[in-house]
Each structure stands twice: as structure tokens, then as C-alpha cells.
């Protein structure tokens, strides 16, 4: 009853047998041991489990592992380049964009997807882009600030301006 899937996660290829009903988030957390992706609701409503699948932000509690067959996945563990933090990670720390940190991987991943589509979002666009992600600690104030800061850093560095 297992299904064989091939999946690239954070640049590494995996081939695994999974049950048809296994959620992608459980596959990542329990089969691959990548526990940075958190579960807050299992119902697509909190965003704690957000990852990138082929560059698009996706709630991994609402996808089956078998649906991710053949895709390339990035989780929070794949954001830093060795010791170098991704600008979003650095900005969340610089701007106190996290408290308990439970929503944070999802926030960083949804922001990564957001900035890929819109590299210079306004405050309102950032807020709209976070609609699917809940944070109970920060009141979003510093999360919004962190993402705006990261966008600025990335544009400054990104080099097409």
C-alpha cells in the first residue's frame, strides 16, 4: 500500500515509501526529521506549516506527501546558506519579528514566496500577504517590519536596480 515518491528537499534528493494518506508535513517532520516546519492546526488555517514547493508557498498540512512526488521543496532548514542567514531570517532577528518562534518558520516561508512575487511590497501588501498565517505573540507589528526590512536588504543586494 506504500507509494514510492521522489522529492528534493533543501537541495537533497530523497526516495521514500509513503502511505497514500500521509501528510506532507508529517513526511517532512517525521520521515525526514525536518522538525523546523511546525503544525498549528492541520487544517490549512494557521500557516505554521508553510513551505515552498517549486518556489510557491504551500501549507504542508494540506498536501499529501504523494502530491509532492517529483517536486522541489524548501523548508526553513534550507533557507540559510551555511552559516549565512537568509535576509528574511536576519531581518526577523534584527526587528524582533518573533517571540515564541512557533509561527516563525511559516512566516519566513510565506514571506519568501511573497517577495518572490513582489520584491517591494507596501505595508498593506505585506499584511494582505500574511492573511493565511497566524501569530499570537507579536501582534504582527514586528513581523511586518521584518519583511519590509528584508525586502529592502534583498533589493539593495539583488542588484537589478
Amino acid at each position: 500500500m506504500g507509494h514510492r515518491i521522489q522529492i528534493e528537499v533543501n537541495g537533497k534528493r530523497y526516495e521514500r515509501e509513503v502511505d497514500a494518506r500521509r501528510l506532507l508535513v508529517h513526511f517532512l517532520r517525521e520521515d525526514l526529521g525536518l522538525t523546523g516546519t511546525n503544525v498549528g492546526c492541520e487544517t490549512s488555517l494557521c500557516g505554521a506549516c508553510t513551505i515552498l514547493v517549486n518556489g510557491q508557498s504551500v501549507k504542508s498540512c494540506t498536501q499529501l506527501a504523494v502530491q509532492a512526488d517529483g517536486t522541489s521543496v524548501t523548508t526553513i532548514e534550507g533557507m540559510a546558506d551555511g552559516q549565512d542567514l537568509h535576509p528574511l531570517q536576519a531581518a526577523f532577528r534584527d526587528n524582533h519579528g518573533l517571540q515564541c518562534g512557533y509561527c516563525t518558520p511559516g512566516m519566513i516561508m510565506v514571506a519568501a514566496g511573497m517577495l518572490a512575487d513582489n520584491p517591494a511590497p507596501t505595508e498593506q501588501e505585506i499584511r494582505q500577504g500574511l492573511k493565511g498565517n497566524v501569530c499570537r505573540c507579536t501582534g504582527y507589528h514586528n513581523i511586518v517590519k521584518s519583511i519590509a526590512d528584508a525586502a529592502e536588504q534583498m533589493n539593495g543586494k539583488g542588484g537589478d536596480s
Binding site: L34, T35, G36, G101, T104, I108
Partner: peptide, 10 residues
């Protein structure tokens, strides 16, 4: 916490 290395109960 920003690199996914924090260990929560689950």
C-alpha cells in the same frame, strides 16, 4: 528559532 532548530514538544 529562525533556522528551524528549536525543539518544541512535538
Amino acid at each position: 528559532l529562525i533556522t528551524g532548530k528549536g525543539k518544541y514538544t512535538d
